[in-house]
């Protein structure tokens, strides 16, 4: 995907900027982007190591099997190929739980872990498997219970009711997630027929 999209983004933007006299802005953006990537990676290094460590503790206890059991029906429906892979199912449930709780910092490391486990069973190592596709789509739908960032922005802008949007956000999230899951299931079916 990125082999196609990435050059398109760059070529179109740079050419446009050069013809419209925005060269200075684009020049600044080159240096800003590298430093913000480094900044983000340093934050990542901290949070990813932290949550990997915490998760390792959790994996050696009985909490995770208990939670996974509760989510089993949903996970079996979404990831039929992972039915027998307990480790993948555990990591997927932890990622979903972290997402729902709005722990973005925890959800990403857990999600990357789950991807690694699913990759072990993936017959084509350079291509996403069905389960991985479903997992990524699920992660691009923001499944969080309390949209904390938006509430914080709204509060800082002196909204009369910063939390007014919670119910609409739930509605939009659920509708979007159902659309994503349905689309993924349909695409998988279509491809398997070929």
């Amino acid at each position: 995907m990125l082999n196609k999209i990435w050059p398109i983004f760059i070529i179109i933007s740079y050419v446009y900027a050069i013809f419209n006299g925005n060269v200075e802005q684009i020049n600044n953006s080159v240096f800003n982007s590298t430093s913000s990537a480094v900044e983000l990676s340093i934050t990542f290094l901290g949070t990813i190591c932290l949550w990997n460590g915490i998760m390792k503790i959790a994996q050696n206890t009985s909490i995770i099997p208990k939670l996974t059991k509760k989510l089993k029906p949903i996970i079996n429906f979404l990831f039929p190929e992972m039915k027998k892979n307990e480790k993948a199912k555990e990591e997927i449930s932890m990622n979903i739980i972290a997402n729902v709780l709005g722990l973005g910092n925890a959800a990403t490391p857990l999600g990357l872990k789950a991807m690694k486990t699913m990759q072990e069973e993936n017959p084509k190592k350079d291509t996403v498997s069905n389960s991985m596709a479903m997992f990524i789509v699920l992660n691009t739908a923001s499944l969080q219970l309390i949209p904390t960032t938006v509430i914080a922005i709204r509060a800082s802008l002196n909204s009369a009711n910063p939390t007014q949007i919670i119910l609409p956000v739930w509605g939009a999230t659920i509708v979007a997630a159902i659309a994503g899951i349905t689309a993924t299931k349909i695409f998988i079916k279509k491809e398997s027929k070929k």
């Binding site: 690694k116 596709a133 691009t140 739908a141």
Partner: peptide, 27 residues
Amino acid sequence: IAIYTSCVGIKKIRFVLIAALIADFVG
């Protein structure tokens, strides 16, 4: 998508981007 695929070295993402954008648009 970029982070989740690059961590395991995946290059071909099939329909994932389209499905994810459908979900975004519907939302």
